Every structure is written in C-alpha cells, then in structure tokens.
Amino acid sequence: MLKKQNTVFNNSTVKEVGAILLFYFAFAWLYRIVLWYNGMRYIEGGFWGWLNLRGFWLASGRQYLFLLLGSVVIWFLGYYLLRHKSRKLQLGVVLLLLPVVTYFIREIRYIIIDAIGENRLTGSGEIWDWYIPLLFLFFQFSCFFAYRYFVENQRKIILEGELRQAALKSELSAIKAQLNPHFLYNVFNTINASIPPENENTRNMIAQLSDLFRYQLQASQSELVPLRDELEFVKKYLDLEKARFDERLDIDINVPEELLDEMVPPMLLQPLVENSVKHGLASLIDGGSIAINIKKSEGKLKFEISDTGIGIKDKSSVFKKGIGLTNTRLRLQKMYNSQLELVDNEPQGLTIKFSL
C-alpha cells in the first residue's frame, strides 16, 4: 500500500528538505576547509582553525547561502511551475536557467561584498566565482532529477504490484462468483415460493436481491456496461437500504438522459454508495440523504457521490480499513489514471469525486 508521507511543499518530504540543507552545509564546510588549507591558514590559526565560525561565514557560508537561494529560484521556475509538463522540458529550462542564475548570484554577491568593504576575488580570479557555483548547481540538479526519477519509478513499481494483486483478487472473486450461479437463483425462487402472498413487500425485496446478484454475476464477465444499467443496479441496492431505513433515507440521483448510454466499469458506484450508507448514515438517528450527480465536462464523465452523514476526519485512513474504496481507487488508477478524491460535504458529510 502506498503510504502518504508528511510533505512540506509540492510533495517534498521533511526528510528531503533536511537532506538538501545538510547537503549545502556539508559542501560549504568542505569548501571552507579547502580554502583554509590552500591559504595555509593553519600556520596562523593552528590545525583546528578551520572550525572558526566567522571564517566559515566569510570564506564559504555566505556564498553557499546565495547558492541555496539561487537553487530555489531555479527549482521554482524550472520544476515547480512546469510540474505538469514533460521531464524533457523541465530539464531544458533548468539547463538554461543555470548560467543565468549563477551570473546574477555572483553579481549580487559582489555588490554586497563591495558595499560592506570585504575582500573578494578580482581580475582573472573572478572566473572561479563563476565556474565553481555553476558546477555545483549542475551537480545538485543532476542529483535532484535522478532522485525524482528513482522515487517516481519506485512508486510505479509499488502501484503495479498493488494493481496485480487487486486484479488477482478480482479474478478469483469472478471465478467464485461464476461457480454454479443457478444455485443462487434457485434458492431465491424457493424462498419466494415459501413466503405467504400477504407478505408481498418481502417477496419484492427478495426479487430485488436476486436482481442484484444477477447483475453482479453478469458484470464479472464484462469490462464495461451502459451507465443506465449501473444506475439501475445502484437504485435497487438503495431501495433495499431504504426499506431498512424507512423514512430516514433520502435518495437524489441527477444524471442527464444523454449520458445513460455512456460505457462505464461495472460495480463502480455501488461500493461508494455502500460506504456512504454504512459509514456515513447508519449511525445517525435521523438518517440523512445520498446524492449521486453525474455530468460530462471537457470530454470526461464527472461523478460525485455525496452524503449528509458523520463525515471522515482522517481521509487517508479510509483506504486502510476496507476493500471497497481501495479496490475502486485501484480500478480507477489502472483503467483511467484517475484519482478518487474525498472532500467534506456542506454542511456535513462526505463527497466522493472521480472522473472517467
């Protein structure tokens, strides 16, 4: 199961940000040691002179602080603003920004140093304040993109493993469901025949339950079904639940007529509706309502299943408890690269959104 980590900004974890700061600190001290040694400062300050904090700040700390700020600018312009674009475009923009930002970093740093009257490289020596920062930033962003590629690849491997496991479970479930399905129909018919005629409501409920099983068995053999069939199945399921809730359950389904022939995966809505009934409304004395809204926008079907139940505070924990929402989420990712979004309903309850 993919675990959600604490993020700081744009999916960067606290550990990743800490590693970047440690990376800069370590290289700043390393550069400080090199300058201290090449300048033979150990003769004047002794072996431990490189630990002098003021010397560290003047020799390398300030320069690497400017590099850190410059890298943030490059990251923002070349990666964050283009996070939905191709990786090639991101790399191209970053490569163009590296010399530009390095140049401005050097010039701004020179202006500040000259203003406060401190020493800096001059003449031909200024080339090192161009070459070293440029090389450092190039190395840093090479590591950054390599790391991002590794993380995304690991996530894909984990997701593919989960999808294979879910597919195997679905195949096993389908095989089990197809084992002598007529047995179920015969049992329902036998029960119906044994119920007295005056209990017509019970007979109708058993007939509806039989229809639910029939659809479920047929759906296990189909990749897609018309939306009207899926909605009819959900309506029959909600009618059974309404018989249990009586007047405590209101149902509102809003779907344009022209969308009823759209093809959708079978058994997609029922687990979401069941979640709303079981975890959202069942514990409320006054019950509540469930609304199913489907529309088409920008070439995609937009689904919203809302309830006025108790809602969910920790929405990430929902996928760890049951198989209904988890399997639905995996199916959407596998078939449509779509995400299952859980948001608070107003004034109370939960809304589940996704698109096909």
Rank of each mutant, 00 (worst) to 15 (best):
M1A: 11
L2I: 13
K4Y: 11
Q5E: 14
F9H: 09
K15P: 01
G18T: 08
G18N: 12
L21F: 15
F25W: 13
F27W: 14
F27V: 13
F27N: 08
F27I: 15
L30N: 11
R41L: 15
G45Q: 11
G46N: 06
N52Q: 09
G55P: 08
R62G: 05
R62Q: 08
Y64L: 15
Y64W: 15
L65V: 10
G70Q: 02
S71D: 13
I74A: 03
L77H: 02
Y79I: 09
L81F: 06
H84L: 08
K85H: 14
L96A: 15
L98V: 15
V101G: 00
T102L: 01
T102A: 11
Y110P: 00
I116E: 10
N119V: 08
E126I: 05
D129Y: 07
Y131H: 10
P133M: 05
F144P: 03
F145E: 05
Y149H: 14
E152T: 11
N153S: 15
R155F: 06
K156Y: 07
L159I: 12
G161C: 08
E162A: 10
E162H: 09
E162Y: 12
L163N: 10
R164S: 15
A166H: 09
L168D: 13
S173N: 14
A174Q: 06
L179D: 05
L179G: 04
H182D: 12
V187H: 04
T190Q: 11
I191V: 15
N192H: 08
S194I: 04
S194A: 14
I195Q: 02
E198A: 14
N199Q: 10
E200S: 11
I206V: 14
Y215S: 04
S220P: 03
S222K: 15
L227Y: 05
D229V: 03
D239K: 08
E241H: 04
R244F: 06
R244T: 08
R244L: 11
F245H: 03
R248W: 00
D250C: 02
D250G: 07
I251G: 01
V255I: 15
P256V: 05
L260T: 08
E262P: 01
M267I: 12
E274S: 07
N275K: 03
S276C: 12
L281T: 00
L281K: 00
S283E: 11
I285W: 03
G287C: 02
I290W: 00
A291S: 14
A291E: 10
K296C: 04
K302Y: 04
I312L: 10
S316E: 15
K320S: 14
K321S: 15
L325G: 01
T328G: 04
Y336E: 04
V343M: 09
D344V: 06
E346S: 07
P347L: 03
G349M: 00
G349K: 00
I352Q: 03
I352C: 03
F354D: 01
S355Q: 13
